[in-house]
Simulated assay, not measured.
Amino acid sequence: MTERVSKLRFRRRPSPVLPEHRPLYKIGQTLLILQIASHGGKSRLARLHLLNWALKRPERQVQLITASKSKRLAVEAWGFDPALAIAIRFAISEELIEETSTGYGISESGKDFVQLLTKDEEVFVGEKNFLRQIGKGVTEAMVEKVASGWEKS
């Protein structure tokens, strides 16, 4: 019996990464959230995750637009995205975002960068439109009220 040994060959091929998993994309979204929809350019992590979660689906955006107008957040839970956590860490290391005693805020470099994003009418069009509609209407207190219910469950 003759055994024939064959060799496996692997070819490294580029693999596409979804835009929402790219750190720079998430950094841009986060800076826009802080600039357009946060008081003083600052936000707690849970609120950043809520707005990030809403950006993924139009029906979620409608929920938050409604919440911003009614001043009542009717979302029981939302997802926490590891891609956002990674992007925040990168943004901190690049000095675009800084940690505060209660969460995160835009640094001076971040303000310069987000100003470029807001001026460019071809990038983050949907995100900017949504964030402008909710404005600063989804408050930390609203998010905290929902999140505090998680601990009781």
Rank of each mutant, 00 (worst) to 15 (best):
residue 102 T to H: 08
residue 37 A to P: 03
residue 90 F to D: 11
residue 103 G to T: 02
residue 28 G to D: 05
residue 38 S to W: 01
residue 111 K to R: 11
residue 72 R to I: 06
residue 12 R to P: 07
residue 20 E to Y: 15
residue 118 T to D: 10
residue 108 E to W: 01
residue 37 A to Q: 06
residue 45 L to S: 11
residue 137 G to Q: 06
residue 104 Y to N: 02
residue 110 G to L: 08
residue 123 V to E: 10
residue 83 A to V: 07
residue 90 F to G: 03
residue 70 S to M: 08
residue 140 E to V: 02
residue 59 E to N: 09
residue 7 K to I: 09
residue 82 P to R: 02
residue 132 R to P: 01
residue 38 S to P: 02
residue 110 G to Y: 01
residue 139 T to W: 03
residue 100 T to D: 06
residue 149 G to A: 10
residue 138 V to Q: 07
residue 143 V to Q: 01
residue 132 R to D: 11
residue 133 Q to R: 15
residue 95 E to H: 13
residue 123 V to F: 07
residue 45 L to N: 01
residue 6 S to A: 04
residue 42 K to M: 12
residue 1 M to S: 05
residue 25 Y to R: 13
residue 144 E to L: 12
residue 94 E to N: 10
residue 95 E to S: 14
residue 34 L to F: 09
residue 123 V to P: 02
residue 140 E to R: 06
residue 93 S to E: 15
residue 34 L to Q: 04
residue 35 Q to G: 06
residue 72 R to W: 06
residue 56 K to T: 13
residue 32 L to A: 10
residue 63 Q to W: 11
residue 121 E to I: 11
residue 138 V to K: 00
residue 28 G to E: 04
residue 42 K to Y: 04
residue 48 L to V: 07
residue 45 L to H: 10
residue 123 V to H: 05
residue 151 E to L: 07
residue 46 A to W: 01
residue 58 P to A: 15
residue 93 S to M: 11
residue 137 G to V: 03
residue 142 M to E: 05
residue 1 M to C: 00
residue 90 F to T: 05
residue 43 S to M: 09
residue 84 L to Q: 08
residue 5 V to S: 10
residue 41 G to W: 01
residue 141 A to E: 15
residue 131 L to F: 04
residue 23 P to F: 12
residue 119 K to T: 09
residue 100 T to K: 00
residue 133 Q to M: 15
residue 40 G to A: 09
residue 101 S to A: 14
residue 122 E to I: 07
residue 29 Q to E: 13
residue 107 S to Q: 02
residue 39 H to M: 02
residue 49 H to Y: 06
residue 28 G to R: 08
residue 42 K to T: 13
residue 91 A to Y: 02
residue 86 I to G: 09
residue 114 V to I: 10
residue 59 E to V: 08
residue 41 G to L: 00
residue 139 T to K: 01
residue 148 S to Q: 05
residue 20 E to L: 13
residue 138 V to M: 08
residue 141 A to P: 00
residue 81 D to C: 06
residue 96 L to V: 12
residue 15 S to W: 12
residue 89 R to P: 00
residue 136 K to G: 04
residue 96 L to T: 06
residue 111 K to Y: 04
residue 20 E to Q: 14
residue 53 W to M: 05
residue 75 V to A: 07
residue 63 Q to I: 10
residue 41 G to I: 04
residue 145 K to D: 09
residue 11 R to A: 00
residue 60 R to Q: 12
residue 88 I to S: 07
residue 30 T to H: 03
residue 68 S to Y: 00
residue 67 A to C: 06
residue 31 L to C: 08
residue 71 K to V: 08
residue 151 E to P: 00
residue 97 I to N: 03
residue 63 Q to S: 11
residue 43 S to F: 03
